[in-house]
């Protein structure tokens, strides 16, 4: 009985985890869109990326 309850709880958790992954997919789509827009608008450019690197030859 307890085993069954544990199993049901676990499956519910797996379902919840998968739906969290689905929401995560939306979040990464938003992040990628913002970054691409910032690049197209020129906010993120080669100079900014280059400034991230402190050690250069």
């Amino acid at each position: 009985m307890q085993e069954e309850k544990k199993s049901a709880e676990f499956q519910e958790k797996a379902r919840e985890t998968f739906s969290a992954e689905r929401r995560e997919d939306y979040a990464v789509l938003v992040i990628a869109t913002i970054v691409v827009l910032l690049v197209l608008l020129g906010v993120i450019d080669k100079k900014l990326i280059s400034a991230l690197y402190l050690f250069k030859y």
């Binding site: 199993s7 499956q11 797996a14 379902r15 985890t17």
Partner: peptide, 18 residues
């Protein structure tokens, strides 16, 4: 891991299996 999580409720997986 993603596929295992997607399939777990379908096949009635137990925590130990997972």
């Amino acid at each position: 891991v993603s596929a295992a999580v997607a399939v777990a409720p379908v096949v009635n997986a137990k925590p130990r299996d997972f």
